[in-house]
Design a protein around this nucleic acid. Structure first.
Length: 590
RNA sequence: GGAGUCGUAGUUCAGUCGGUUAGAACGCCGGCCUGUCAAGCCGGAGGCCGCGGGUUCAAGUCCCGUCGACUCCGCCA
């Protein structure tokens, strides 16, 4: 009987249990560890399901033992044998009640000594693990992340298909877009000097599916943005992309809530309550200093601008007089040392704050604080009361422009919560953030930019404001947020060619320019476009949050480093002169 | 583009005030061992101290630059 041809795998190693005792099994896998006692010896066979202990006993099979004797770390082998109960059980192993006594074995392939230990609790530098990603991927945590990812793909497809969505593909080689993220460009060989771009998202294509009448579209698609990386951002990432016709935002919310409910139930076995909390952008920024608020803890931002406007503390008074804000976060129980506050001051400074004022209240609301001398006893009591401070509570203040106050205190809030252990690791705090401004003013370029994208519909009642006060226009846009991460975002789109043209005008795009860049869209809007809208969810972030991780590299099989390189393939890399010639490119300085 | 942290054996780290031959654990190689669980015991090999300059009688250690990894700011419609 030959392995592979006659002897097929009967089980995965990690699935063996007491119920299999007495059965003959065939296992294939890698040598995880080996414990040799001179006579009988043990080899842990590892496959994608886990480990099983193989016992090689020369008195059972000398041939099998001879094969087993050659096994070293990561050698690939197969074994046939009987499952037996162990003499001494291992409660730390899922298969710890049983072992397989080898009767026949085959060495398929030896292995070089791996550059790092292939173990679950590895502490090796990530760059080395990325260089040998195929070894890192043998580890259970990564295998589980990728298998979870596969499962989510299937749940999403089933759910959306069951709800009448149709899955389509859209081009990867497409047209460069003037707004938004930096494009990855692909030179054209056939058209010298011209370029395709990789899609930042299939935005316009999915809208055109609506124009074409397909009504409900989805795609699990790769998107590309040539911007700097973060722990939750890769240059190529995967979106669950959705678009629907004849809808209002609530329809999108319902579909997404049902989708996420199903995913968390089937993957984590938890019930998440729906509908999710809805919160305006203004409220999110005001209370949490973020458009993606982490609602797993309190520490809300509180405005004291009116109470300090006429105080003797000129930093606060002048900030308010200049149109700024003074806001505070209160840490119940306080106890932050001077050294801790210095560290937190560094945190807020990275967001542009000039400093961090602080005060500890007593039972009467009187302060112990370097700035206490600037406030009367009445002022101190009034501020303590406004902030709801009990004895010993510590307030941390930032005074600045609203944007700086929000960013600084928002980050401070997050840092404090983490350091003080205020976050329940099992909590899942979903919410929708709505009513985003349509436009933000760019000081440097002295023009309006679309906060979401230029195809986002303003609220109908705000359309006239586009002419008079663009900063006040609210968009029919929405983000779904989980634990402080933006899980996805979308909007109701413009389906009126006149409004779309108005949008391009406002963004400073001439008629010729808009026609050249988006002529096909303007054409489409003229040919019977239904009201429509949609959303895209970040698949990588979703998986990361599902497994309780904090870095999307851990849920991507072959991720890139923060400098957008692949340590394994060494991409990007130089190309030959001939390849450059074919696409009509001359390198600078050559 | 900017800030911070890190870079010493295959891996994870230590290395004092700049001073003799750069250490430990794990891994690796050899030997012993019949019930281990990352087995154990004995022995051995293994170093471009990221790279380049500088200061010094002397640099893993101090200074400057550079490369790479990570985290963050800017950026990410």
């Amino acid at each position: 009987m030959q392995f592979l041809a006659d002897l097929k795998r009967t089980h995965y190693a990690g699935d063996l249990r007491a119920e299999h005792i007495g059965q003959e099994v065939v296992l294939f896998g890698w040598t995880h560890a080996r414990r040799d006692h001179g006579g009988v010896f043990f080899v842990d066979l590892r496959d994608r399901s886990g480990l099983a202990q193989i016992t090689f006993d020369p008195t059972v099979s000398a041939d099998a033992a001879a094969v087993g004797d050659r096994l070293s770390r990561e050698f690939v082998f197969g074994v046939r044998g009987k499952v037996v109960a162990r003499e001494s059980k291992n409660p730390n192993l899922a298969t710890g009640e049983v072992e397989v006594v080898a009767e026949q074995a085959v060495l398929f392939n030896p292995a070089a000594v791996p550059p790092f230990h292939i173990r679950d609790d590895i502490d090796t530098n990530e760059d080395l693990r990325l260089k040998y990603r195929f070894l890192d991927l043998r580890r259970a945590p990564l295998q589980q992340a990728l298998m979870t990812r596969s499962k989510v793909n299937q749940i999403v497809r089933n759910y959306l298909t069951d709800n009448g969505f149709i899955e389509f593909e859209t081009p990867i080689l497409t047209k460069a877009t003037p707004e938004g993220a930096r494009d990855y460009l692909v030179p054209s060989r056939v058209h010298p000097g011209q370029f395709y771009a990789l899609p930042q998202s299939p935005q316009l294509f999915k809208q055109l599916f609506m124009v074409a009448g397909y009504d409900r579209y989805f795609q699990i698609c790769r998107c590309f943005r040539d911007e700097d990386l973060r722990a939750d951002r890769q240059p190529e990432f995967t979106q669950i992309d959705i678009e629907m016709s004849f809808i209002v935002p609530e329809d999108v919310f319902g579909i997404i809530e049902g989708l996420l409910k199903g995913v968390f139930e089937q993957v984590r076995g938890v019930q998440i309550p729906t509908p999710f909390l809805r919160m305006s952008y203004a409220e999110a920024m005001g209370r949490y200093g973020s458009d993606k608020p982490d609602l797993r803890f309190g520490l809300e931002l509180q405005d004291v601008s009116d109470l300090v406007a006429s105080s003797g503390f000129s930093v606060f008074a002048e900030t308010v007089a200049g149109g700024g804000q003074v806001k505070a976060v209160v840490l119940p129980g306080g106890g932050l040392s001077r050294g801790r506050i210095d560290k937190l001051t560094q945190v807020v400074k990275t967001y542009g704050a000039k400093g961090l004022a602080y005060a500890t209240a007593d039972a009467e609301g009187a302060w112990t604080s370097p700035i206490a001398k600037f406030f009367s006893a009445e002022d101190q009591a009034a501020l303590s009361q406004r902030l709801g401070m009990a004895a010993g509570d510590q307030a941390l203040f930032v005074a600045d422009k609203p944007g700086v106050v929000a960013a600084a205190l928002g980050a401070l809030r997050q840092t404090l919560a983490r350091e003080q252990g205020l976050i329940d690791p099992n909590a899942l705090a979903f919410c929708w953030v709505t009513e985003f401004p349509s436009f933000e003013w760019d000081e440097k370029e002295q023009r309006w930019f679309a906060m979401h994208h230029p195809f986002t519909s303003p609220r109908p009642e705000d359309v006239p404001l586009m002419d008079t006060d663009p900063g006040q226009v609210k968009a029919r846009a929405y983000d779904v947020v989980l634990n402080g991460y933006e899980l996805g975002g979308g909007s109701i789109r413009i389906h009126d060619a006149k409004v779309q043209q108005k949008m391009f005008d406002l963004l400073g795009m001439s008629a010729e320019e808009s026609r050249q860049k988006f002529g096909f869209l303007l054409d489409a809007l003229a040919f019977g476009t239904p009201p429509h809208g949609g959303i895209a969810l970040g698949m990588d972030r979703l998986i990361m949050l599902l497994i309780g991780g904090d870095n999307i590299r851990d849920v991507i099989a072959f991720p890139k480093t923060t400098s957008a390189s692949c340590m394994m393939t060494e991409a990007p890399s130089p190309v030959s002169k001939q390849q450059l010639d074919e696409v009509h490119i001359t390198l600078k300085g050559e």
